[in-house]
């Protein structure tokens, strides 16, 4: 039951405790936050299981961990480790450039990123239990998160406006399972919970994504790369709960110190864009 909550990236049990005490509804256990992965380069893999277990033991809230796109053995290991969710993530270096993990054989739920509706529905077709709009991880720039969430929501609205006999071609164009396309056209929402990720750095960013229709937010580098993580974490939780109340978001925005060091997404080289990974 993560809805309405904030999921925070943490790299140590101490950070996990800070996140839990600030009101995170889950933590993402990883060795390096996306901004460090971006800086260090090289191949980013599943984190050391020892480190994930340490975080699991430190908190009572759910723990997520990342597997590389298509790396179903990393996913098997995470399942054997008894964590709560697997994020098949573009933040790590993909292991398969044609296939994502078949998530159906797993008992553990998966969250997957998406930049548009077709991508989201393909992931759900493969068994994802939760979608996060990708944004551009590790930048602190909200623009890609906004682009992806708006894209998904806008494509959903287009489906809602279609006649039944137009949905077959829509499914073809979206390259998505017809049954899911029909379901979305009917209900006006994804059949799974949808969070937003990739660029949230301030309480206002979190409230923006919630007002745009996200059901919760992931914050990666935005908390523990800022000058006062505990305070900023609390503030983002408060802004996510009261996203429609400007006075409360304002209240949460005072005295937070410096945000993370940010990168403008547009200044990134094409090859550095993480959101393009996955298909």
């Amino acid at each position: 039951m993560l809805k309405g909550g904030v999921i925070m990236d943490v790299v140590t049990p101490e950070e996990a405790k800070i996140a839990e005490e600030a009101g995170a509804c889950a933590v993402m256990a990883l060795e390096r936050v996306p901004s460090d992965i971006r800086r260090d380069g090289g191949v980013a893999r599943m984190s050391d299981p020892e480190m994930i277990r340490g975080i699991k033991q430190a908190v009572s809230i759910p723990v997520m961990a990342k597997a590389r796109i298509g790396h179903f053995v990393e996913a098997q290991l995470l399942e054997a480790l008894d964590i709560d969710y697997i994020d098949e993530s573009e933040v790590l270096t993909p292991a398969d450039e044609a296939n994502h993990i078949d998530k159906h054989p797993f008992k553990i739920p998966f969250v997957c990123g998406a930049t548009n509706l077709g991508e989201a529905l393909r992931r759900i077709g493969e068994g994802a239990a939760m979608i996060r709009s990708k944004g551009e991880a590790g930048t602190g720039d909200i623009v890609e998160a906004v682009r992806h969430l708006r894209q998904i929501r806008s494509e959903i609205r287009q489906l809602q406006g279609m006649e039944n006999d137009e949905l077959f071609a829509a499914a073809k164009n979206l390259q998505s399972p017809l049954s899911l396309v029909q379901e979305v056209a009917e209900t006006g929402k994804l059949p799974v919970v949808m969070f937003s990720a990739g660029g949230v750095a301030t309480p206002a960013d979190a409230a923006l994504m919630m007002q745009l229709g996200a059901e919760g937010v992931f914050v990666g580098s935005g908390i523990f790369k800022s000058s006062d993580p505990a305070k900023r974490a609390k503030a983002i939780v408060e802004a996510t709960t009261h996203f429609a109340d400007p006075e409360r978001v304002l209240h949460a925005s005072f005295g937070l110190g410096e945000p993370m060091q940010s990168i403008e997404s547009r200044k990134l080289d094409e090859s550095e864009l993480l959101a393009q990974r996955g298909w």
Binding site: L2, G5, G23, C25, I61
Partner: peptide, 15 residues
Amino acid sequence: LPGGESTTMMLGIER
């Protein structure tokens, strides 16, 4: 009172 994360909800109740 719905399901969710009890720690998160308790912190919210305090806040």
